[in-house]
Structure formats: C-alpha cells, structure tokens
C-alpha cells in the first residue's frame, strides 16, 4: 500500500534545441504549382512542427525502358512511347506531386539522342503537366552536363531540379546551367558524408546557395546496404541541425533502386507474388530513408507512391 502513495512525478518531454536548420528549397515556378522541401529546425515534430511533408516524384523515362519490371510496365504500357503521356498519367491517375524525367535515351550506348532532342522531350513534359520536374541525365559523365545544359534552357523559369552534379563530371557546367536559368541542383555523393560536404562546397563556390541545392547521399536498397544509407543520412541531418553549413540542404532518395533487389522483382513461388513483394520492397526502402531524414523520393510503382505519400503526410501532421 506504501506503493500507492508514491508521489506523482512530473514528466518532462526530452526536447532539444538545435543551433542549425535545414534550408528550404522551392521547386516549381512559372507555370508550375510550387513544392517546398526541407526547412526543418528540429529532428522531431514533438520538438517543433515539421514545416513540409515529404514529396514523392514519379519516375518517367524518355524511352520505353525495356528493363522495367512487369508490375510497373503493366501500369504504363499504354503511355511508354511518349514521355508527355507518361507524365500526364502519373499526375492525373496516380496523384504525383512531381515528375522526374530521366533522359536515358541520351546515353551514348542507349540511343545517343542529342541535347536538342532531350530539350524537346522536356518541353513536351512541361506542356503535359503542371507539377515541378526533376530532370535527370543518362548517367554518362561526358554527356550529362551537355544534356542538362540544354534541358535547363528549355525549362527556363520553371525552376526544376537538375540531376545531378557529382564529382565525376563537369559539375561546374551543371551549376552554371542552374544559375543561368533559375533551377536547383541535385548534389550526389556516394554514401560518404565528407564527399558530400566537398561537393556542396564546390557548388556553392560556383554561386549556388543552400536554397538551390538538394543532396542525394545515395540510397542503397533494402537488403543491399540500406544500413549504410541510414547511417550517412542520419549523420548528415544531425550535422545540419548542429550547424554544419555545408550540409544544411534537404535530401533526396533514389528509392527506385529498390527494384534492383532480386527480392523485389525475381519470380520465385516460395516468396509470393511480385505484384505485392515489389511495391512493398520499394515502400519499406523509402520509408526507412524518410525516417532517416530524406525529404523527396524518386519512385516507380503507383501503389508505393500513394502509400509513401500518405504515410509521409501523417508523420509531419
């Protein structure tokens, strides 16, 4: 009975104060409905309301992408010939906040489309939808800066995100294209906080500000090193809030990488249907990145996009 009589103790929520904050990046201007990324002043919503819900951007390609897994192809097979139709479907039918147009066809070993042709594709997608765009290259370090330069020109005034600048290519050209035509830049480093800092510093030296940069610290998929990404992204966000001015930008995740995992795409009866397995693999990958601090997600499957968006909105509310 003595136990009943213990005095009640007050509960103090463990709220911290943070010297630093994450810059807010605006994507979409002109004819686009704008979207805002970042802006956090604290790690958790019980410390400080979270300013912006996470954003999902739908992957669209400038070619019919033969390698896409069946559970994705079957949703888009009617529009894959035309990037504008593809983007329209992603927005109209699947409620995308944003669209990423990957200019894979410009790859010298793919179709070697010229930067001019790439710019036409961008114009077409801009016509088709009114959401902000991420513009991605083919991954070729020689050609990407040239392609992004023309694409940036074509999208003048629409404030897109150019993907990406990294240390293996002429990041100066990419930074200049963004500055000249008012776009933001995706700063991509491979799971290495120091590499990320270096690259961000170089980009800022070119004249970009924190409000013009989104970081991609690399998403290793669930089961394929996701713990490396968790650690790097967590460290990056903590450093930003502690005041490291070189890391105070919002972060992006190439969640689509999840589809490279054989658990997502491989047909195997004892693992159950890929129709559910694949999207869930993508969702859990994205969700884990979201909880580590990522603000914007590049994704492929309609179900994954919808669910991740829903969950993300409840986290910040």
């Amino acid at each position: 009975e003595a136990v009943e009589a213990l005095p009640e103790e007050e509960f103090e929520p463990p709220v911290k104060t943070y010297p630093g904050e994450v810059a807010q990046v605006k994507l979409g201007e002109g004819t686009r409905k704008p979207v805002y990324l970042g802006g956090q002043k604290a790690l958790y919503r019980f410390e400080e309301p979270q300013p912006n819900p996470p954003v999902v951007t739908f992957d669209v390609f400038d070619i019919p992408m033969p390698g896409l897994p069946r559970p994705i192809r079957e949703h888009f097979s009617d529009v894959m010939e035309d990037p504008g139709d593809w983007a329209r479907k992603a927005v109209k039918e699947y409620g995308a906040n944003m669209v990423t147009i990957h200019l894979i066809g410009t790859g010298p070993k793919v179709m070697d489309k010229s930067p001019r042709e790439a710019a036409n594709d961008i114009e077409e997608v801009l016509q088709a939808v009114d959401v902000p765009l991420v513009i991605g290259g083919s991954g070729d370090p020689e050609k990407d800066p040239l392609v992004l330069e023309k694409a940036a020109e074509a999208a003048e005034g629409e404030r897109c995100l150019l993907a990406s600048a990294n240390l293996d290519l002429d990041y100066r050209k990419v930074a200049r294209a963004a500055l000249d035509h008012n776009h933001a830049v995706l700063s991509w480093a491979i799971t290495d906080v120091n590499m990320q800092k270096t690259l961000n510093r170089y980009l800022m030296k070119e004249g970009l500000s924190r409000e013009d940069i989104v970081m991609d610290p690399t998403t290793c998929a669930l089961g394929y090193g996701i713990e490396f990404s968790i650690d790097v992204i967590t460290r990056t966000r903590l450093a930003a809030l502690k005041g490291d001015a070189d890391l105070q930008m919002p972060m992006s995740s190439g969640t689509t990488n999840a589809w490279g995992s054989r658990e997502a795409w491989m047909k195997k009866d004892e693992w159950g249907p890929t129709d559910y397995r694949g999207p869930l693999w993508e969702i859990v990958t994205g969700l884990t990145m979201m909880l580590s601090g990522v603000d914007i997600f590049m994704m492929l499957h309609p179900t994954s996009v919808r669910l991740l968006r829903e969950i993300g909105e409840t986290f910040t509310r």
Binding site: L222, G223, G225, I226, E227, I230, E263, E270, W271, G272, P273, Y276, R277, L280, W281, V284, L287, T288, L291, S292, I311
Partner: peptide, 30 residues
C-alpha cells in the same frame, strides 16, 4: 518497419505471408 526504425525492441504482428515478412526480416538483419 516504421517502429523498427524507431527503437521497437519487440513487435507483435498479425500476418504470416512470406512476402509481407521478407522486408521486415531483411530490415531487421540490416
């Protein structure tokens, strides 16, 4: 997956379908 990422030490689940459990088991392993 959310709670495992946020310190859950023990979780009670209702499902036993392998395709649901695979990502949870894999996340835990990582």
């Amino acid at each position: 997956a959310t709670l495992m990422n946020r310190y859950a030490d023990i979780l009670i689940l209702g499902g036993t379908d392998i395709w649901e459990l695979m990502p949870i088991l894999t996340l835990r392993q990582g």
